[in-house]
C-alpha cells in the first residue's frame, strides 16, 4: 500500500487543526506547539523528527490523547476529541491508540502476560479471551515463552517488545511510539524498528517520534518540527534529498 493510495481516502485518521500548546512559565510563555496542522491517513508510516525540546513529545501526547491542547481542534478517526472529558479520552486511548514509550512503562510487579492484558481489562474483555489475545500478541513479538517473567528479568530490547505487544493487543487504529529506540543499543534498535515496519506493512498506522534523522528515514513520510512549528512535511525521499 503506497502513500499516495492511502491519501485518497476522504477522512484522515488524524486531523490536527491549528493546535497550540502553551506553557506559562512565570511571565515567560513556552509555545510547545505553535500552530500545528497535520493530517495522517490510515495505513501510513510517519516519523516526526526534530531536535530535543522542539515540541515532538508535546505533539505526540496530544495525538495520543494523553494531553489536551491549549487551543485548536483535533479530529481523531472522525471524532472531535479536543473538548472531551478525562474519562472519554481514556476510552479513546483504550480503543484507538497503542502506545510504545521510550521508558517502556511496564508495571514492574506484574508478569509480561498481565502487562499485555491491561488494555483488554480496561476494555472489559473477558478473562479467557483476554489471556488468549495477550498470549497471541506476545507470540507476535517472540516472547510467548517468557509470559510468566517480570519485566526486570528481561533486557531493554525485550521489554520494549513487550510494550509493543501491549500496544498491539487491543487492535488499535494507531500505533504511537515516542523515541521507541531511545533507551536501546543500535542492534536492538534495529529489531524494534524492523518490527514497527512489519506492523505497518500488515496495514497498521504507525507514527514514531525521534530526534535521530537516520531513524526518521525508516518511515515513509517525515514531518520535521522546530520550535513547535512544522518546517517540513513530505515523502521520505524528498526529505533525504533535503538534508
Amino acid at each position: 500500500m503506497g502513500v499516495s493510495e492511502v491519501r485518497r481516502e476522504a477522512q484522515p485518521l488524524i486531523d490536527l487543526r491549528d493546535i497550540y500548546k502553551i506553557y506559562q512559565m512565570g511571565d515567560m510563555e513556552v509555545r510547545a506547539s505553535d500552530g500545528i496542522s497535520l493530517k495522517i491517513w490510515k495505513g501510513e508510516f510517519v516519523s516526526i523528527v526534530g531536535k530535543s525540546g522542539s515540541g515532538k513529545s508535546t505533539m505526540m501526547n496530544i495525538i495520543g490523547c494523553l494531553d489536551v491542547p491549549t487551543s485548536g481542534e483535533y479530529i481523531l478517526d472522525g471524532e472531535d476529541v479536543s473538548e472531551m472529558e478525562d474519562d472519554e479520552l481514556a476510552e479513546i486511548r483504550n480503543k484507538t491508540i497503542g502506545f510504545v514509550f521510550q521508558q517502556y512503562n511496564l508495571l514492574p510487579r506484574q508478569t509480561l502476560l498481565e502487562n499485555v492484558e491491561l488494555p483488554l481489562i480496561y476494555a472489559g474483555v473477558g478473562r479467557k479471551e483476554r489471556q488468549e489475545r495477550a498470549m497471541a500478541s506476545l507470540e507476535k513479538v517472540g516472547l510467548q515463552d517468557k509470559w510468566k517473567y517480570l519485566p526486570q528479568q528481561l533486557s531493554g530490547g525485550q521489554q520494549q517488545r513487550v510494550s509493543i505487544a501491549r500496544a498491539l493487543v487491543g487492535n488499535p487504529s494507531l500505533i504511537l511510539a515516542d523515541e521507541p529506540t531511545g533507551a536501546l543499543d543500535s542492534r536492538t534498535s534495529r529489531d524494534v524498528l524492523d518490527f514497527l515496519k512489519q506492523l505497518n506493512e500488515e496495514g497498521n498506522t504507525v507514527v514514531i517520534i525521534t530526534h535521530d534523522t537516520s531513524i526518521a528515514m525508516e518511515a515513509k513520510r517525515v514531518v520535521r518540527i522546530r520550535d513547535g512549528k512544522i518546517t517540513f512535511d513530505g515523502d521520505v525521499k524528498e526529505y533525504a534529498a533535503n538534508v
Binding site: D87, A90, K95, N105, P119
Partner: peptide, 16 residues
C-alpha cells in the same frame, strides 16, 4: 502515581 499514569494511558477511567 507513575503506575496510575500507565494505567490511565492504557485506558483506565478515574472510577476504575
Amino acid at each position: 502515581t507513575r503506575e496510575i499514569g500507565i494505567r490511565k494511558s492504557l485506558g483506565a477511567k478515574q472510577s476504575v
